[in-house]
Design a protein around this nucleic acid. Structure first.
Lengths: 152, 152
DNA sequence: AATCGACGGTTACGGATGCAACCAATTTTG
DNA sequence: CAAAATTGGTTGCATCCGTAACCGTCGATT
C-alpha cells in the first residue's frame, strides 16, 4: 500500500460521488422530466408528503438541504400551488408548510414511481449484495453523518 | 410495503447523495482549503498523477467528468503551472496533458492526505462493515454505472 | 480532392448553489 | 426592561455547472 499513487476509481469519496450522480441522474428523470421539479423541490415535496405540516427548518433537516435551497424550493412549490404557508400563532417568524390537494396528488403519484425505480435498481443485485449494501451504507452513514455537522 | 408513503431517509438515491455530500464536504477541506483546488481540478490532478500523460477526453473518462468541467479544470491547472499541454504530432485536435514538476509535487503531497482521510473514515467501521460496504458498492456500481451512459 | 460526418476541445448562456449579509421576531442576559 | 444574542427565513452576489452551439481537425466516402 504505497503512498505514491492513489487509485481514483477505488477512492471512497470519488466512488460515492460518482455513484450518487449516476443514480440521481437516472432518478431525476422521474421528477424532472415528468413533473418539472428540481431536486430540492422534489425533496421538499417528499418531506412534506411523508411527515405532513412542517416548518422550513424542519424540512431542511429532514431532507438534508441548506436553508437557502429550502427557501427557494418552497417558493417554487408555492407558486405552483403545491404547498401553502400558514402563519404560526405562537411564533411569527415561523411558517407552517403544508401540501395542497394538488401537491398531495402529485406526491401520491410519484411515490410508486420512486419505489419502482429503487426496486428495479436493487433487482440487479443478488440478495447477498443487497444485504451488504444496506449494511455498508448504514455503517458509513453512522460514521460520517454525525461527525460532520453539515448544516450550519 | 405500502405505496402511499416514501421514507426519504431510507430511499437509495437520497441516501447516496447525502452520504456523498457529507464525505466530499469533509474531504474537500484537503484539496480546497489547503491547496485551493476545486473538485474538478483535484480530479484532473488525481487522474494525471495516477496515470501520467493523457488527453482531456481520457481524463474525463477516468475521472467521470463532463468535458466542459475537464476543459475548465485543465485551464485553471495550466494557469497555476501545475500541468502543461503539448501538441500531439499525429492529431492536431488532441492535446497531451502532463503534470509539471510543481503539479507532481502537489500530487505527491496530497496522496498521503487522501489515503489518511479514507483510512480514518473507514476506521470507524468494523471489519465486517468495511467488507459489506466494499461489496455493496462494487455491486451497485456494476448495476448502475454501465446502464446509465452518463457522458454524452 | 471535395464533401460530409465524427471527434477533441472551448465558450456563451442560463440556471442552480453556497456564502454572507440581512430583516424581523424571539429569547437571553444583565 | 433594555440590550444583546439567537433564530427562522429571504435575498444579493459571485461562482459553478450543464446544454448547446461552435471551431478546427481528421477520416471516410465519393
Amino acid at each position: 500500500m504505497s503512498d505514491e499513487i492513489l487509485a481514483l476509481e477505488r477512492f471512497l469519496p470519488y466512488r460515492l460521488n460518482r455513484l450518487a450522480d449516476a443514480v440521481s441522474r437516472d432518478f431525476s428523470r422521474i421528477y424532472k422530466e415528468r413533473f418539472g421539479l428540481t431536486r430540492p423541490e422534489w425533496r421538499v415535496l417528499a418531506a412534506l408528503g411523508e411527515l405532513g405540516t412542517m416548518t422550513a427548518t424542519e424540512v431542511g433537516r429532514h431532507s438534508s438541504q441548506h436553508k437557502t435551497k429550502v427557501s427557494r424550493a418552497v417558493a417554487a412549490l408555492e407558486k405552483r400551488r403545491w404547498l401553502a404557508r400558514t402563519a404560526d400563532e405562537s411564533d411569527r417568524r415561523v411558517e407552517r408548510l403544508t401540501l395542497t390537494k394538488a401537491g398531495q396528488d402529485a406526491y401520491r403519484e410519484m411515490v410508486p414511481l420512486a419505489k419502482a425505480f429503487e426496486k428495479e435498481l436493487l433487482a440487479e443485485l443478488s440478495a447477498a449484495e443487497r444485504a451488504a449494501l444496506a449494511a455498508g451504507l448504514d455503517a458509513l452513514e453512522q460514521a460520517s453523518l454525525d461527525r460532520s455537522n453539515q448544516f450550519d
